[in-house]
C-alpha cells in the first residue's frame, strides 16, 4: 500500500480546486456542480462545501448524477444503480463535472450522455481529485486536477474520506 495524498494535504487540495473553480467562474451568475455517483459524490460533497465556505454569496447548483444506465460495459457485469438528483436545468449553463479518480475516461464518456438528459449545457469542465495519466481509452482530459499520478494497469487507486471532513487519504491498493 502506497500513500498518494493524506490528511491536511488532501484538505488543501480540495480547497485549491474550489478556489480554482471559483476563480474561473467569477463573472458567471452561478456555478453548476455535478458529482458522479457513487464515489465522485463523496468528493463533490466536500468540494461544494469548500466553495460555499470561500464564497458564501455565490449561488451553487449542486447535483448528483448516476451513470449506470449509460455505461458501455452494461452487459459485462451487474451494476447497481445509485440515485440521481439533478433538480435544475443545465440548459446553457457551464457545468463542472466532478469525479474522484480519472482513469480510462469511460465513466466520464458515459456521464456526458447522462448529463445531456437534463438539457444542453453551454460547456462542461471536468474536475478530478486524481488523474491517472497515460491510461486513457477515450480522448478525455480534466480541467481541474488535484494530483496527477503515474500508475500501472494492475494497480487500484482509492480515496478514503474522514466523516464530515475535507481530510482523508488517497492510496494505491
Amino acid at each position: 500500500m502506497r500513500n498518494i495524498l493524506s490528511g491536511k494535504q488532501l484538505a488543501l487540495t480540495v480547497q485549491r480546486l474550489a478556489q480554482h473553480i471559483l476563480e474561473d467562474q467569477l463573472t458567471s451568475s452561478e456555478i453548476v456542480l455535478i458529482g458522479i455517483q457513487p464515489r465522485g459524490v463523496l468528493f463533490s460533497d466536500r468540494l461544494y462545501q469548500a466553495i460555499q465556505a470561500i464564497e458564501p454569496s455565490k449561488q451553487v447548483n449542486y447535483g448528483k448524477l448516476d451513470i449506470t444506465f449509460y455505461r458501455d460495459d452494461i452487459r459485462k457485469e451487474l451494476h447497481v444503480a445509485n440515485a440521481t438528483d439533478v433538480n435544475f436545468s443545465i440548459e446553457n449553463k457551464q457545468v463542472v463535472l466532478v469525479d474522484d479518480v480519472l482513469y480510462t475516461g469511460r465513466t466520464i464518456r458515459s456521464a456526458f450522455d447522462a448529463l445531456l438528459a437534463f438539457g444542453r449545457p453551454a460547456g462542461v469542465k471536468l474536475c478530478v481529485l486524481i488523474d491517472r495519466r497515460f491510461s486513457r481509452e477515450f480522448p478525455i482530459q480534466p480541467d481541474y486536477v488535484g494530483k496527477s499520478i503515474d500508475s500501472l494497469f494492475s494497480q487500484k487507486v482509492k480515496v478514503f474520506w474522514e466523516e464530515n471532513s475535507l481530510e482523508g487519504r488517497v492510496e494505491f491498493l
Binding site: 444506465f69 440515485a83 445531456l116 438528459a117 437534463f118 438539457g119
Partner: peptide, 13 residues
C-alpha cells in the same frame, strides 16, 4: 432510479 429517469426532460436511456 428509473422512476427518477422518467421525471427528466429526456426520459430515455
Amino acid at each position: 432510479q428509473f422512476k427518477e429517469v422518467l421525471q427528466r426532460p429526456v426520459k430515455k436511456v
